[in-house]
Design a protein around this nucleic acid. Structure first.
Lengths: 103, 103
DNA sequence: TATTGACTTGTCAAATATTGGCAAATATAA
DNA sequence: TTATATTTGCCAATATTTGACAAGTCAATA
């Protein structure tokens, strides 16, 4: 339920002195939805991250990383083997990257 | 679509000389479903992993790790920042574990 | 203490996604 | 061809997520 993405967005929004009511319409949602996003009970859409980053004058890659990390965490959070699973996935990513690099 | 879990299951099933038709009913599914699971186009349910491990005389934790890793991979596979996101999630996991250990 | 503004929460129907089951297609061997 | 194993496509049933709205809390202040 708690989300690093949401916490960071709130931080950035407050730094810009913006209200939910001001930001939400720019994302074509109501304040209730944006509030839930900041609280971590809803996911923002991937394409909206860039829009939000622009509004908050923030780095969209930073937000994207947090948004993805929240979802990764969600998959394994209750698992004893969470770290092992992460290692395995990381291995796969790395080896796929190697293959991609060599076309 | 390709899945480490599925590939490993197939490997184990063949090592035990079992047909889909023999294994599927033990998991209360039809062969088509199990085939899809091995091919990575469907997810097995978490509780079924233990059952499957018993049938295949395999380590259920090994299978669980692969099953989770597939899902983690799915989240970030098309992302440039995949590895960064994994690192961030890993950090969260580790720090939560620290907090849990100290209650 | 009444009002206002910002945010939060609950609910629920609509939109999406996932699953289960069947039938037909494919593959391989005899 | 026939038989057996596996794969694929489809679709209805089920489950999950989303969007929208109303009502709620909370804090500041008139």
């Amino acid at each position: 339920m708690k989300s690093q993405f949401g916490e960071r967005v709130r931080e950035l929004r407050e730094k810009q002195n913006l209200y939910l009511r001001q930001v939400a319409p720019l994302l074509e949602m109501d304040t209730a939805q944006l509030s839930k996003i900041e609280k971590g009970s809803r996911l923002i859409k991937r394409e909206q991250i860039q829009v939000l980053a622009d509004i908050l004058k923030a780095d969209s890659n930073e937000l994207l990383v947090l948004w993805l990390a929240d979802q990764l965490y969600e998959v394994v959070k209750d698992e004893d083997v969470a770290l092992k699973a992460m290692d395995a996935a990381q291995e796969t990513l790395k080896s796929n990257k190697r293959n991609k690099r060599n076309k």
